[in-house]
Design a binder for these strands. Sequence first.
DNA 1: TCAGGGCATAAGCTGGTCTTATGAGCGACC
DNA 2: GGTCGCTCATAAGACCAGCTTATGCCCTGA
Lengths: 309, 309
Amino acid sequence: MSDQNATDDGRPGGSLAHRVPDLGALELLLAVARLGSLGAAAREVGITQPAASSRIRSMERQLGVALVDRSPRGSRLTDAGALVTDWARRVVEAAAAFDAGARALRDRRDSRLRVAASMTIAEYLLPGWLLALHAARPDTAVSLLAGNSAKVAELLLAGEADLGFVEGLTVPAGLDSAVIAHDRLIVVTAPGHPWARRRRPVTTQELAATPLILRERGSGTRQVLDTALGGLARPLIELSSTTAVKASAVSGAGPSVLSELAVGEELAMRRLVGIPVEGLSLHRDLRAVWPTGHRPTGPARELLSLTRG
Amino acid sequence: MSDQNATDDGRPGGSLAHRVPDLGALELLLAVARLGSLGAAAREVGITQPAASSRIRSMERQLGVALVDRSPRGSRLTDAGALVTDWARRVVEAAAAFDAGARALRDRRDSRLRVAASMTIAEYLLPGWLLALHAARPDTAVSLLAGNSAKVAELLLAGEADLGFVEGLTVPAGLDSAVIAHDRLIVVTAPGHPWARRRRPVTTQELAATPLILRERGSGTRQVLDTALGGLARPLIELSSTTAVKASAVSGAGPSVLSELAVGEELAMRRLVGIPVEGLSLHRDLRAVWPTGHRPTGPARELLSLTRG
DNA sequence: TCAGGGCATAAGCTGGTCTTATGAGCGACC
DNA sequence: GGTCGCTCATAAGACCAGCTTATGCCCTGA
């Protein structure tokens, strides 16, 4: 049980969970950074001071880095501690988004705002919106149902959802809509791919002629791409989830075309590289939708206003 | 100990750590999603099948949502499970970045590549680069030292670092450099601010006339802004860390000007809104630097090539 | 019909994290 | 100068989550 298990996505052995402090410890660290005292941080997260002291200490031992300078009149972060705290904040924020999403997924019934959203939006945008809504109206219980555009329309028309979100080129019949954001499809490759190194943009013709890793025909993403290329997209592999497509692209199987929402993280981490394409606008609107005539009111209106730039 | 502690950044009470499964559970869920079987996932993360079964079950109980469909010939994610898994992936990725950073911070000496970086780069970009480097060259031990531009230059010239990264308008004397990326400063406000609602862009004059939440004079960010405005930036508050500035802006204290690197997450979560500004280019280069004449070789060259688009 | 892979359950162990109780350093204030 | 109030550290014991091993049932394919 040393580190004989290297996962196939290239991470080091020994499982992250054994090398990264747990969420409670990271939250405690953030509280210490903000409040300048172990005891005050302990009170905030609802534990005793000795527990906080011990937890911070074991986190320092685990990371092998001194994080806080203790003194009889308080504790301040070391330089390394400040850096670690910033990294920790990202983990905690991702966890908060997870929590907001999971909460909405759980509270299926009896919630004041029932949202139906397409997968891409539910995956990448909704948790953030829910966090913002929660910050503005802490007592609004939200429930979430995810599906494709047709399913969203069905739920709205059956009165089983109050507000919907869809991406795509058309608005389902019977629904009014408002554009809330724009999404762009991006051509991406692994950093090792020849396209990642060339200087001039790829041409539309080249893109149409190159086999690509794609979602299945009929998916929103594929639809936009096919339309933009004139139905010519040539699949290298067809996969049924955005995640699978990304994984395949990251592993270097070939170029892919994905929503900028989906690849933001990968681009930042340089697991994927965006390839400029000449003269091609792979653009789609993200829309909020509701039954014709029933303008959103109350919490639905609140959420809607949060989503508009 | 119910939920009488609402933290001042608006998160719900009861501590995330009690509502979000720990990293080990999330990793396990990702493995189940990828491998399609609890047993196989258990083997991958190095535990027994009953442990995996129990852990997934307790995660489902905790979240109140069924995540996997078990069958005598394997397990598949439910629809909700797929969504949860995608959210979980973000948490795990943030944790992986944390780990990569912490690792580099620990291995001060005896590492094959010693990197010195300015705070902004160390905070936002370096963990991703380190992950990419680790994927490409798993056995390269990297150490990290963070400081301002002068400190980076000093470390490089003293031979205590092999490669540096700085942001700012000038390159320290004695160093060669290559531009690896561009950073833009963005004017941001909380979503409730009047600027977030207006249609026409803010003018340079308006910006110069408005008190802003800013880093202290002398910081890289402030330097670029002052230069762009002609030394006119008017501070509403001056704070000494990017984090503090962000927190203040999010809480609605006023408009701020921050690196797009720093506010990416906040923009996505809609805790902040980007405000277009007319006729102002708040642009700065991010550079890799090394002692004049000593072109990076070996691991340093490898890392450098990963950072260039 | 039997082997094998899948999952679930039960019993027992271990380790990490909490608590309470206490001590010790430093500063402010009467 | 004592005393209060804040800080953090240490020690001893309770508790619980998660692990392991052992076992059984279900389904499929040879």
